[in-house]
Amino acid sequence: MSKAAVGAGPGSGSSLDSDLGKDSFHGRRWPLYSLLAFGYAFLYVPVLLLIIYSFNESRLVTVWAGFSTKWYGELLRNQQLLDAAWLSVRIAAVNASIALVLGTLAANALVRHGRFRGRTGFELLLTAPLVMPDVIIGLSLLLLFVALQQTLGWPPGRGFTTITIAHITFSMAYVAVIVRARLARMDRSLEEAAMDLGARPLKVYLSITLPLIAPALLAGWLLAFTLSLDDLVIASFVSGPGSTTLPMLVYASVRMGVSPQINALATIIVAVVSLAVVIAGLTMRRPQGERP
């Protein structure tokens, strides 16, 4: 326990340090803070400009011609876009749910099953989708689906199913990372107590472990959902005629140039996602059962 307390550096040392005290050995803080400010400006100004110009009257996205919400109205009347959005949301929801289950199982395997045979390969397969360029994942999955169709006759066509399978494959790796970190840091004394009192392992897992890691499960589900909603490259490879996802439609429109409707869409996405992240962040702030 003492080792854990030392290792948990962030919680132990810095809460005692005031910013003033740190100056003595961290050096002057202002150059650091100005870089920090620049970095945040770099990350946020483009998105802010995007949002501001979504309320622009003019079709020319970059010339300000007065406040208007007409692009939002046009967006809501764009049936093609609404269809694509609905398809994307359905894919994202199914993907997030299945990826959550598979990713959590994988996290259990890594944290709870020690050094099982084939563990290195298992970890390799779980890390690779995190960094693998999208074009490679997309191409390879398409070729798999084509080969499967030729030999087994399944999948019958490309669309909802193939896109969802492709998304699960990379989303589950992200879920596994989040859930694994949480499982590894979890205090197991409650589980041990329940076991000693004779509860069955499955019962312990369902009624103690899962509630304790619930914030990570929520974060994992949300991340899988947004990753799927955001994917252009992989979906372009594995989709078929008649199944255009929202990013595919946005991409086609953006290639033609900047359009205020896309700005409006972007604003809605940013608003929804920010809200979800803030809510998730607030629920995760006071985690229970975690070591201090």
């Binding site: 483009p46 947004t226 946005v250 953006v254 996405i269 940013v270 920010s274």
Partner: peptide
Amino acid sequence: WTSFLIRVY
């Protein structure tokens, strides 16, 4: 968490 495509756009 916000759309990569839109941030590039």
